[in-house]
């Protein structure tokens, strides 16, 4: 499983080995990543819907996804899941535990799950997650669901990849106020109050309705563990999806995401070059950082005009 053509072919044939390996190639910055990405421009990419599910740890995101998988599978859809957990800033390692909630579907080859760690990168994670989503769509997944823990900017950026964003909250778990401050609540299309059977759920629900009623944002109650409210959630998702496709909002958003993605790539490609040049910069960078930054950029532009004697790194994620 190492030949790019073979991998690409495998993706279209829904081969788990090919899909898994393709995602690794992108994620690990394998030098064949560019070649691979070029070949997987899915035609069906516009038809498939990308769902983003975020919220504090322990609110039940993975449990909800597990139920959504069951729902979409019943309708005959093939489902992709990209589950993202934070890397440890100390060791760089990560514990990727979302899958444990979805083991019920472990033998179902039409449920494609990939766990990813944030690996401490911002744009890079986005790029890798976006590629994973695209690969899954190529293999016939619709929808693809991205799970992130809504704590940092990196995760919020990933959620922006989604066509529809669902914020999951639960009574007594995480700090709701913090979520509101973090602005995640502003990008949510649907807010789910999970664990609705628990005390505090009703007041959380009402509070959210109050906050969100001016905005076009649906709040719904779910008991994920018992699959209660999942059908309704799926209906909400379906309605929003249909409306947005009709109004053109869907295509607009995709375009925006695309822009973000391109800029992320560009920044990642520049990063190494900037670092190299900074090392050569005289002195201890004691001057105004902004001025130095400006100078670095100008230098690159001049070098580019000069001639293209030096090779810039090609694709770098």
């Amino acid at each position: 499983m190492n030949d790019i053509d073979e991998i690409v072919k495998g993706i279209y044939l829904k081969e788990p080995r090919a899909i898994g390996r393709a995602i690794s190639i992108i994620e690990d910055g394998d030098q064949r990543a560019g070649a691979l990405l070029k070949q997987i421009n899915a035609k069906n990419i516009q038809e498939s819907t990308i769902l983003g599910i975020t919220g504090p740890i322990g609110t039940g995101k993975s449990t909800i996804i597990n139920q959504l998988i069951a729902h979409y599978r019943k309708q005959g859809n093939r489902v992709g899941i990209v589950a993202i957990d934070p890397s440890s800033p100390v060791s760089g390692g990560a514990f990727l535990g979302d899958r444990i909630r979805m083991m019920r579907h472990a033998m179902d080859k039409d449920v494609v799950v990939r766990s990813m760690a944030t690996r401490g990168k911002q744009g890079g994670l986005c790029a890798a997650a976006a590629a994973a989503v695209r690969i899954m769509i190529c293999s016939g997944c619709d929808p693809v669901i991205i799970e992130t823990v809504g704590v940092g900017q990196a995760e919020i950026d990933v959620v922006r990849l989604a066509d529809i964003t669902i914020l999951v909250l639960a009574p007594g778990v995480g700090d709701e106020i913090q979520m509101m401050k973090a602005g995640i609540i502003e990008i949510a299309d649907i807010v789910v109050v999970n664990k609705a059977e628990c005390p505090g759920a009703d007041s959380l629900f009402m509070e959210l309705e109050n906050v969100l009623h001016q905005r076009n944002c649906t709040v719904c109650r779910v008991i994920a563990r018992e699959a209660y409210g999942i059908e309704k959630l799926a209906v909400f998702i379906g309605v929003i999806d249909k409306e947005r496709r009709k109004s053109g909002q869907f295509t607009n958003k995709r375009k925006q995401t695309r822009e973000t993605e391109i800029i992320d790539y560009a920044i990642e490609m520049m990063r190494d070059e900037l670092r190299r040049r900074l090392k050569e910069y005289p002195g201890n960078y004691t001057g105004d950082p902004r001025t130095i930054a400006r100078k670095l950029i100008d230098d690159i532009c001049i070098a580019e005009l000069d001639t293209s004697k030096r090779n810039c790194p090609e694709v770098f994620l």
């Binding site: 788990p16 898994g20 890397s87 390692g93 514990f95 990727l96 444990i100 083991m103 472990a106 766990s115």
Partner: peptide
């Protein structure tokens, strides 16, 4: 990066997870 399957998994489940 560690993916833990939890207890009581069949060999087939473990294998497919490893591949995915």
């Amino acid at each position: 990066e560690v993916i833990y399957t939890g207890i009581r998994r069949t060999p087939e489940e473990i294998a497919l997870t490893a591949i995915q």
